[in-house]
Amino acid sequence: MILPKIPVGDFVETSVFWVELHLGWFLDLISDFLDLIISGFSDILMFFPPFVIALIFAFLAYSTGSKNLKLAVGTFAGFLLIENLEIWELSMETLSLVISSAFLALIIGIPLGILTAKSDFLLHILKPLLDLMQTMPSFVYLIPALIFFGLGNVPGMIATLVFAMPPAIRLTNLGIRQVPLELKEVADAFGSTPLQKLVKVELPVALPTIMAGVNQCIMLSLSMVVISAMIGARGLGYQVLFGIQRVDIGMGFEAGLGIVIIAVVLDRITQNLSPDK
């Protein structure tokens, strides 16, 4: 084999630097915007005393989980435990990062999913791209995010966005494509406009699948937010990383516990959002 090595790595590197050099102003704009979103959410979460936030989440768990009192009590207790472990601020920072990344991922991902469902052409383009986004080890996203946006929350959020968006696109696409043909025919046969067909027939019927995508998107966001502590995203992930570096088992475990509590609460709430079939 005398074939020379294809310079994939070099190419990616050059293009990343090129973007950094020529589109720096644009990246700064994005960065400022994203920072605004994150700090907005974290300001809200920090504004209220822990007790109130715990109550709000308990109520959310209760009202979405078909009046499940156990879940509400568990949520409330979990949040109080976080406060007790003195990791409240870190947790709220993680939570605001998760909420803002997932929020953006869904705002971009669901419409993209709808478009993908409507166009086979788009599906053919997006499918390999989504495969790539999902199978690429998540750490790899950290590097370009770091270069483009420096250290901090914003690159963490960008990396999270890329990592968490695919399931939202995929499952929205799948949900709409799986709407039974007869139901689509009903919409047409009764004279619906394309928008009426989408809003009144396809989206409601696809809702359980789309909500599964929302749930996955949020859970992936959480996992990525923790990892992106490696490029300076703050919150519980940073604490875990700190614990690793100092071999402080107790501190690492406490932070990890906080992540688990947030994960379980978010998972149950979003799972319950999807209507039962």
């Binding site: 007869e182 139901l183 009903v186 046969a189 004279g191 009144k200 019927v205």
Partner: peptide, 27 residues
């Protein structure tokens, strides 16, 4: 033109009334 389908093709998220009213609703 009204149409009736083999497998009923009713919208599962709607009540009987809202299903029947669908054609009028979109008008």
């Amino acid at each position: 033109l009204g149409m009736v389908f083999q497998n009923f093709a009713l919208l599962p998220h709607r009540s009987v009334l809202d299903n029947v009213a669908y054609g009028l609703e979109i008008q």
